[in-house]
Structure formats: C-alpha cells, structure tokens
Nucleic acid binder design. Structure first.
Ligand SMILES: [Mn+2]
Ligand SMILES: [Mn+2]
Ligand SMILES: [Mn+2]
Ligand SMILES: [Mn+2]
Lengths: 216, 216
DNA sequence: ATAAATTTTTAGTCTAGTCTAAATATTAAT
DNA sequence: ATTAATATTTAGACTAGACTAAAAATTTAT
C-alpha cells in the first residue's frame, strides 16, 4: 500500500466512521485534490478490494479497507500520545508530525509503542485509539453545547483539532480533565456562561460545539 | 526535498564520508538502481545545489548537500537508539524501520528525541550520531583483525550491520562492550583465537574484519 | 416533465522517478 | 596509438498520482 492509498482510506474512514457511502466530491474536498483524482484512486482501491464502488454511487470501505484505515488512525493517535507524553510537544503541535509517522510500516513498532505508552485509550485530543483489530470503543461523548444548565462536567475531548481552537483553549486554561460547570445559556446567540477554574467565562457556540464533555 | 533525493544524498555520503568523488555506477550499485537513473537524479541534485557534478567525473556533496545527508543519518541513528533502548528491539531489527523513520521531517522531533534519549553518542551498532550541524566525532576505531596478539580490547562497533552478522554475534554473545582478548592469529586463513566471556573462541577473518574494537 | 445546476466520470496532459537500449566518453590492454 | 572493455550519458518508454477541460449522469428547480 502506498502512502497515497493509505491517505485515501483514512479520509474515507473519517468521512464515514459509520460506514455510510462517501461521495467522490466529499473525498476530493477533504483531501484538497480534484474530483477526477479521487475517482481515479477510488477505482484503484476498488480493484484492490479496499472499497466497494459503483459508478456515481460513492464509495464504502470493505472489511479489509476499514482495517487498513483504522491501522493508520491507530498509529496516528499513538504517535500523538508519544509526542505529547514523552517528547513534550503541546497538543497543537502533534498533528502534522503524526501525519508523517502514521505511515511507518512495522506492526512490531506500533505494538511496542502502544506498550511503551501504557496502552493509552485516547490521544491528546480525546480521540479513541483503535486496537490492532480496528475496534474502537467510542464512549458516547456529548458536546458541551448540549449540556443542560447547572450540570457539572469534565472536558474529555475536542471536536476540532486545529491549532487555532487548541490555542484558544490553552488561553482559557481548558484542557482534557478540566471541570466545567454550566451556569447559563443565552437564547440570542447560544453562547454559554460557564465556570472554569472557579472563573466565570463566556463561551461562544463555536466553542461549546467543539468541546466534548462527560457529565459528573 | 523528496524521500528519493534524501536517499541519494545519504548514499553519496556513505560512499564517501571523506567527501571524495562518487561515481555514477557506485551510486547506482549501492542504491540498487540502474546507472541511468542515478545520472538523472545527480543532475537534479546538482541543479538544486546539493552536489557538485561534472559529466563523467562523478559527484561530490556540497556543504548544503552534506548537511542534508548528515541530518538523515542523524535521524536514522537516533531512531535506532530509540527502538533498542525504549522499545526493546534487538540490534538486528532496527535498520528497516529506521530507514523509514529517517525521513520524518520535524527538527523539533529530532531534537526532542535526542534529548529524550539523553544525547547518545552512538547508535546500537556503534556508529556515531552526527550533531544537528552535521559534525561527527569519529573516534578512530580499529578493526579486530588488526589488533596485535595478547591485546585486550572492547567491542565498540560493527562494520557490517546485516542481520546475518548481528545474529552471528548474538550467538557468540558478542555485543557492544564485550571484552575480547586476542590469543593467537593463524597465518593460513587469518583466523584468530580470542577469549570472549572467558571462553576460547575461533573467529574467521570475515568476522574480525567487521568488528570495531578499542584497546584497553 | 423539462430544463438547469451539480456531481461524477472520462480523456488527455504533466512531473517524478524509474527502466531498457543505444550512443558516447573514458580507461585499460595490446 | 589503436583497439577493446568499461563507465557514463542520452533517448525514449512506463507507472503513480496529480491536473484541466469536456462529456455524461444525477439531482434539483421550475
Ligand atoms: Mn491528528
Ligand atoms: Mn488527535
Ligand atoms: Mn541502520
Ligand atoms: Mn546503525
């Protein structure tokens, strides 16, 4: 499998973790390539048995394709943990490097890394780490925006791993494990007033929609 | 820089660490490609200022090319240390994986890795690790074959990092740090009798030529 | 139900990196 | 100093993966 093939499979997986059908265009958009290119690659992946493909009907991962995809995701997230826990990277610095490291081919490496890191369940952004069979335990996470008033919750993940969002969170001292108490929600703009580190803070809907929390 | 360009520079470096001229053919042989391919790439590297090239006269690294090459070697060897010291790989398993890891682009990663590993001076095969400026402290290593009789020495490296040789050494419990006393040398086949771990062992010239030692 | 807009595919082109076969230059041998 | 052998370069072809432009299918709007 080439690096390019791996990236296509990973993108298809991310666009449809539930294994619904992914359109040529959606894939092209996600990968920042032209639709004609994704059509081409889809054909090749179909030949190789990684996806089901019917012209004009989009594409779905096969068992084999899904396993390949989750293997990449597993490596990506394990490396992110490594970078943060062992090398002192911050959570907004790891993604680009993990994009490279995820393509290293050595199951021994992946498994030893997993062990070295003490079998982490989630990456630095709270995303679950698939096991080597492609299984993902997805704790039904909910978004802060949907939490009812007066609830106490803990930040357990982010829905947007962009530098911009992560640095915003850093500024407000919000990280995984941070306790958040919902005080109020504005009808007008869906902004929320919350208590973080014993400080009242106002949070826009963009932010509350991108924070995963667990009620306690 | 593409992965391929990096591999060419690394090969040129290994063929001539002393920066003598490398022939098209030697490069092709080392990289297991055809001479025509190396000619092509040499031209491109020359365009980009990584090598000096005069038709029919072979190729030499420029300052810039040498720095690029040593950067790859630095990464290769640091990753090998990581794999052995942190992930429990044996010294005959690390090379293929390091061949992939050496192409990861992130100077922060490389430098943090170096720090995490406690600034190792040599990789698991005793090869020196270049610093980030491309400087290599090469302790003038000598080969066991050249050591005089009755000398006491310590194994500090191997000249052949192939699985075959490394596994041979494992079988005889020879590793970096192992003390070797030279007892005798046969005129006929240049084989040596040596004392290793208090056991008399006979060693062929192939082996003694591939073991670097330090006299104590 | 047709027409318009959108999505998807096809056809043809480009670059990187490889190859084979042929041409040319260099080196070694007579 | 020629000739033979070897090394190197050139020419032309191939594949992977991208692109643009145009054709075809599908979806949406009238
Ligand atoms: Mn990531
Ligand atoms: Mn992540
Ligand atoms: Mn190596
Ligand atoms: Mn090594």
């Amino acid at each position: 499998m080439t690096r390019s093939e791996e990236n296509y499979l990973k993108s298809i997986f991310h666009l449809a973790e539930d294994n619904t059908s992914v359109s040529t265009n959606a894939l092209a958009k996600k990968m920042k390539i032209k639709a004609s290119s994704s059509t081409e690659m889809i054909k090749k992946l179909s030949e190789k048995g990684h996806v089901y493909y019917k012209k004009y009907k989009g594409v779905k991962l096969t068992k084999k394709g899904r396993l390949a995809a989750t293997s990449i995701v597993r490596k990506h997230r394990l490396w992110e943990v490594f970078l943060v826990d062992k090398l002192g990277f911050s959570w907004d610095e790891v993604h680009e490097v993990a994009e490279q490291l995820e393509h290293i081919k050595s199951s021994k490496l992946t498994d030893e890394l997993d062990s070295f890191l003490n079998y982490p369940k989630a990456d630095p952004h709270g995303d679950p780490i698939p096991d080597s069979n492609g299984n993902i335990i997805d704790s039904k996470r909910q978004v802060l925006a949907n939490v009812s008033i007066h609830a106490n919750c803990i930040c357990i993940g982010v829905n947007d791993s962009s530098k911009f969002f992560l640095k915003y969170l850093d500024k407000f001292k919000i990280k995984l494990g941070t306790k958040i108490t919902v005080l109020n929600r504005e009808f007008y703009d869906s902004s929320m007033t919350v208590l973080i580190n014993n400080k009242k803070t106002s949070i826009s809907k963009e932010v509350s929609n991108n924070l995963y929390v667990e009620i306690i």
